[in-house]
Design a protein around this nucleic acid. Structure first.
Lengths: 133, 133, 133, 133
DNA sequence: GTGGTCTAGACCACA
DNA sequence: GTGGTCTAGACCACT
């Protein structure tokens, strides 16, 4: 199953970041299961009409962020859930969270709407490790 | 009161965006009150050792985003209330919110911690428009 | 002062890794001081006849390893000494150390010679932090 | 005694090199005695699920490096003593040693810890040639 | 002038 | 067939 990744060339965000974000989402929200094979660099390059080098950069970044792993000659695969959270990354995420929620609130979005989105997002995100069951 | 704005040159994020973000935060979380005067471009350029053109760009962006307003010859001031919520911007913020919360959850941060940060952020953010009081 | 970096194209080790290693050495053994400016990507590309993309890859890797930092529009600079050692990297280094020393010993190099090289290397490596005075 | 060789497919290092390194270690640290028989290519291929060609290549390299010898139709055996020290290889090992020790020192590892590892490694490595006893 | 991104096209090592 | 490396050449954003 090859998930289609839509790229918006007019988006100022770099293409490889758009790819990273899309794949991250697919992993986080469970559309891609652990150890599932991702489309090969060349394959994804063809289906998206993006240059293979650009795809590879996205994959490399995802690997160093611990979302996927690479087996040379075989392809790229979804990593099992990370054991240790990188504290630097967590700080970034918290900062983004505060800025985003703050702006939403400032723009007049009622608390109820915000917390609802947060709740839904959490319950839809991939249960990590599976320890709970 | 001239808020000190710390700029990190090593940060890959463009300087003018760092300035925008910092000032946004000061407004959202109430450190800068409505109609309060912002430091002049020159002044801020001096205290931060940043090129005035860069400061100028940040101010211009903040104005078009409705966070501040400019009075020619007088200076820049904090906007009293956010301009009508731009639905495109709201969608962006929601997308960021979902991505951020999703990743936090995926990285193993318990729901409690996330919602706590969200709650605190909301209650600390500036009551918009002064409608509540 | 632009240190000349010699590249051996016949060496099976990738060019960007050769560059990384050379620069690491210059930093570790103090030929490049903290906050000293490195040659720009284009400049080094010219003096070495290596493609700029290859140089950039080396610089990016060095940055993510904490040896240098990048200021966009300004250039690349030697990072001050790392505060926290990355435990994963340390493990790699210890493994390499054991393998190397083991093989040297196995090949008949007397203990004296090995420890001498180790001692010299340590005393020549850049004093980090400067706390000791 | 068939030593178990763990291969990490995610490791970017080629599989045949991982095998070479593992076997080298077993020889250097005495887990495999001189003239002891190594598992056959087929056998090792089965127990590790690695392609026999890959194992073959590792063995061939080990032979030309003087760590093992092959008797046609009989199998592969641990070389009794290292072949005459190849000065090119020694230079490589010294270079690696300096780079590794330098980086460890740079990363803040105290001299004591480094020399301790070196000492232990030397005393655990196989006494070469049996000259000492 | 600096780094950052992207493309097109090529060759290699590995399995 | 897969990822990894490299080149040549181009355009952009930032300062």
């Amino acid at each position: 199953m090859i998930p289609i990744i839509a790229i918006d060339l007019r988006n100022p965000k770099p293409i490889y970041e758009q790819i990273k974000d899309k794949i991250k989402q697919l992993i986080i929200f469970g559309a891609l299961k652990p150890d599932e094979k991702l489309p090969s660099v060349r394959e994804l390059a063809q289906t998206t009409s993006i240059n293979p080098n650009t795809i590879q950069k996205a994959y490399k970044d995802l690997e160093s962020d611990g979302f996927i792993y690479t087996v040379s000659g075989r392809g790229n695969f979804v990593a099992p859930s990370p054991k240790k959270a990188d504290s630097k990354r967590l700080e970034e995420l918290y900062a983004t969270l505060r800025a985003t929620v703050g702006e939403l609130s400032y723009l007049g979005v009622p608390e109820k709407n915000i917390t609802e989105v947060v709740q839904n997002t959490i319950s839809n995100s991939r249960p990590q490790g599976g320890n709970k069951v």
